[in-house]
Amino acid sequence: MLTCKEFDDFMLDYLEGGLPVWQKFMCWMHVKMCRECAYFVQKYRRVITLGKDAFQSPDGMLPDYVPEELVKAALAHRRSK
């Protein structure tokens, strides 16, 4: 069986489906047998989701409009070149 450290080395590829079948199986077995790594994977996945969500809300730094002075500055910047 893989050690936790070995599993950690494979983890990214395991979660993204980039491992050959045998290694994938070894990782799957490790997660089934190791409570700490199972918990770690659960939290790791949660963090990926949180990262994506953080920038997708209406207030997630996507303004509905751009301040008028910035629009004007961009147009003026173009004219000046």
């Binding site: 920038f55 997630g60 730094m61 996507l62 303004p63 409009y65 910035l70 629009v71 961009a74 147009l75």
Partner: peptide
Amino acid sequence: EEKCFETLVRNVGPQVLATAKR
């Protein structure tokens, strides 16, 4: 044409600003 540049800035401006801030 100036008007089209303005249209572009107003349409994709929020996305550009959000990306730059990120």
